[in-house]
Design a protein around this nucleic acid. Sequence first.
DNA 1: TTTTTTGCACTGACTGGTCAGTGCAAAAAC
DNA 2: GTTTTTGCACTGACCAGTCAGTGCAAAAAA
Lengths: 209, 209
Amino acid sequence: MERSSTPSGGSTRREATRQKLYEAAVTLIAEQGFSATTVDEIAERAGVAKGTVYYNFASKSVLFEELLRHGVELLTASLREAAERTDRDGGTKVDALDAMIRAGLVFISRYPAFTQLYVAELWRTNRTWQSTLMVVRQQAVAVVEGVLREAVAGGELSDEIDIPLTAAALVGMVLVAALDWQSFQPERSLDDVHSALSRLLQGRVSGNR
Amino acid sequence: MERSSTPSGGSTRREATRQKLYEAAVTLIAEQGFSATTVDEIAERAGVAKGTVYYNFASKSVLFEELLRHGVELLTASLREAAERTDRDGGTKVDALDAMIRAGLVFISRYPAFTQLYVAELWRTNRTWQSTLMVVRQQAVAVVEGVLREAVAGGELSDEIDIPLTAAALVGMVLVAALDWQSFQPERSLDDVHSALSRLLQGRVSGNR
DNA sequence: TTTTTTGCACTGACTGGTCAGTGCAAAAAC
DNA sequence: GTTTTTGCACTGACCAGTCAGTGCAAAAAA
C-alpha cells in the first residue's frame, strides 16, 4: 500500500518532530548534562508526549548520539566550506586557517549549547556513545589537519610542527576562547574575538596583518 | 608509636578518609559524570561504608564542590610557583608564561581525571555548584592574566592584546591539547607536547628558542 | 459516492527498578 | 570517654522505558 512520503523516504511530519526533539535535548543536556536530563523534560520542552520520543528514537542515548552526529556534520561542513572558499579566492593556506577559526567562532555563536555539550562529553570514557564521539571528533579535527598538512607541503609552515597536536591545540583554543566569550563576555563582537585569536597566533601561524 | 596531629587542626584520620573519598569520586565522576555516579560506588571504590560518606560530607554535591575547590587550589598554587620561580631565576615574563604552560601540562598529566571533570562542568549553567566553579575558574585564569599584564607593562608584549581573552585562549589551548594528548596519544612525552605548544606560540607570545 | 480498512504518528498512564539520604546499634580507633 | 567508622535495613522520590489506545488521512472496497 502506498503511503504519502517525502522523496527521500522519511515523512516530513516525523522529521519535524525529530528536529524539535533535537532542539529541546541540546539545550537541556548542555545545561544539566546527559544523566541529569530526563526524557520527560525533553518531551515537555519539545511540546510532545513522552511516547513520541520513543517512537522516534530507540532510547535516550540513541537520541543523544544522533544529535551529536547531526551537529558535528554541520560543523565540519562549515569548516570545509571556509577552507574551500579561501582557496577559490586565491588565499594562502594560512589564510584558510584563519578563515576556519572564524567559521568555528560563527558556528559556536550560532549553536552554543551544542558546543558546550560536545566539550563536556568529549573526554569522558566508559560511556556508550564513546565510539560515536571519537568518529565525530576525528571528522572535525581532520579538516584542520588537512589544511595544516597542505600548508607544510607548500612551505608556508615549518615541517617541524606536529600536525595532530597542533590541530588539537588550535581547535581547543578556539573552542575554549569562544565558550568563555559566550559565557563571560557575551557583549563582545565576533570580530573582536577573532582578531584577538589571530593576534595570538601571529608570526608563526597566522602571518602578519 | 608516634602520636602526630595535623598542624591545621583536623584529625589525621578523618582527613585521610576524606582524601580517599576525593580520589574515588574524582575518577568516577570524570568517567561517568556527576549524576551518573552513585554514592554507593564512591564509597565502595574508597573502601568505606556509605554512612562514612555522609559522616564526612553533608551531601553528594557538597563532596563534589569541596573536591573542585581542593583541586583548583593545587593548580593555582602550581601555576603561581612556576611564575615565581622563573622570576627568581631572572627569566622574562614570556619565559614565565612558558613555564606556566609546562606547569599546566604537569598538573594535567598528574591529575587527568580532575582536569576532565573540570572541563566537563565549567560551562554548564543551572547547576548548584555553578558559583563555586566561577570563583575557582577565576582564581586560575587570574594568575595567567597577571603575568600577561606584567608582560605588557614591561613592553614584552604589545599593549594591543586583549588580556582576559588571551588568558582564556591560552588556558584553553593547554587544557585541550593536554586532554587530547592523554586520551589519544598517551605515549608522547611531556617535553614533546610542551615544545609543540611553544612552537605554536612562537613569534608573538613565547619568543624564539 | 459512501463506507471500511490500513498504517503512521503520537499519547500518557503505568511499571519496575534505581538511588540519595536516613537511622541506629555495635565496633573500632584514638 | 569521645570520635569515627561500620553494616545494613529502610524510605520515598524519581525516571527510563512500555503499551494499549487515539486521531487522522489515504487507499480499497462496496
